[in-house]
């Protein structure tokens, strides 16, 4: 636990930076490959040396999450058809696509808020397709839901306590985790006794993120973390996500803003009307004319 904390805070920025650079380079070399068929590539080297072997982490590069032909539906209305994707240990994976493409639905399916009516979901080798949301949290999957969904009438501190519900019998551990979160997001300390509903949007997003981290997840799922927030706050949030990832947590990110999503992640999947239409390393996706045209707008070659 204390190891995770130290990795969280005291990682020298230079080391992380160079790691990211080398990742970018190696990925650039393979940029000529087809962007559509490289879903199962090995993850980037940037995480192979993330030095926080908290006890829950398996060897880097192992398959963490695997969706196989998953179909999700609202009533009789299928929102996602035949979703097949993987998240490797230590990766950040982005799902991009326009409104209604099924990104959030996919994430809800991963977190157990929706049950797959076809296909299989495996997590750390185990079949979790039939597990309910609270069981998946215990298995190590945490979701920061779309729209933040903090408990508005609970205080900030109580919200964090709810995030650490799985450790409720171990009060010192919960207190230590809350202390870590407040260290990480000082605004939450200032607001600790306020009802969460009185927080600003950015503060609520930080609270929702911290609340999810309270369960010490192996896989952190984020649904539209930038939604409705000022650019400066979005930058902060994405910096936090990168830090969390460096400390050893794998991330599955759904993001409307494809540029943020592709900049932050190692690999990405592009969804359109409930299907995956492209996947690959983010550098490849950024170079893909279809992705550029549809989701990156005016982004030109060589930019970013």
């Amino acid at each position: 636990m204390s190891e995770a904390q130290s990795a969280w805070q005291s990682r020298p920025p230079s080391a992380a930076h160079s790691a990211t650079q080398s990742a970018t380079q190696s990925a650039t070399q393979s940029a000529t490959q087809s962007a559509t068929q490289s879903a199962a590539q090995a993850p980037s080297p940037s995480h192979s040396q993330s030095g926080s072997p908290s006890p829950v982490i398996e060897s880097p590069g192992a398959k963490l999450l695997e969706l196989q032909g998953v179909e999700l539906a609202y009533g009789d209305l299928p929102a996602c058809r035949d979703i097949t994707l993987q998240v490797m240990q230590g990766e950040i994976v982005s799902l991009i696509g326009s409104n209604g493409a099924g990104k959030s639905t996919t994430l809800r399916g991963v977190a157990g808020l929706m049950r797959a009516r076809r296909g299989q979901i495996r997590f750390r080798g185990a079949d979790i397709t039939q597990m309910r949301a609270h069981e998946r949290l215990l298995a190590g999957i945490a979701l920061v839901p779309e729209g933040r969904r903090v408990f508005p009438y609970l205080t900030v501190r109580e919200n964090l306590e709810m995030g650490g519900f799985r450790y409720r019998a171990d009060k010192p551990r919960v207190d230590r985790l809350i202390e870590q979160m407040m260290e990480r997001f000082p605004r939450l300390r200032e607001r600790a006794t306020q009802p969460a509903g009185t927080l600003s949007g950015g503060e609520q997003q930080m609270l929702a993120l911290a609340r999810a981290l309270m369960s010490e997840p192996v896989l952190l799922c984020l649904d539209e973390p930038s939604l409705g927030l000022a650019p400066i706050i979005v930058r902060e949030i994405f910096q936090s996500i990168a830090q969390i990832n460096r400390a050893g947590t794998s991330v599955l990110l759904v993001e409307q803003n494809a540029r943020y999503a592709l900049d932050c992640a190692t690999r990405g999947y592009v969804l359109q009307t409930g299907r995956i239409i492209a996947s690959g390393a983010c550098v490849d996706l950024k170079a893909d004319p279809r992705v550029q045209e549809a989701y990156l707008g005016a982004l030109k070659h060589g930019e970013s």
Partner: peptide
């Protein structure tokens, strides 16, 4: 306050 999100908390 939010049954679904409570499930996400475990």
């Amino acid at each position: 306050q939010d049954r679904e999100t409570a499930g996400l908390m475990g």
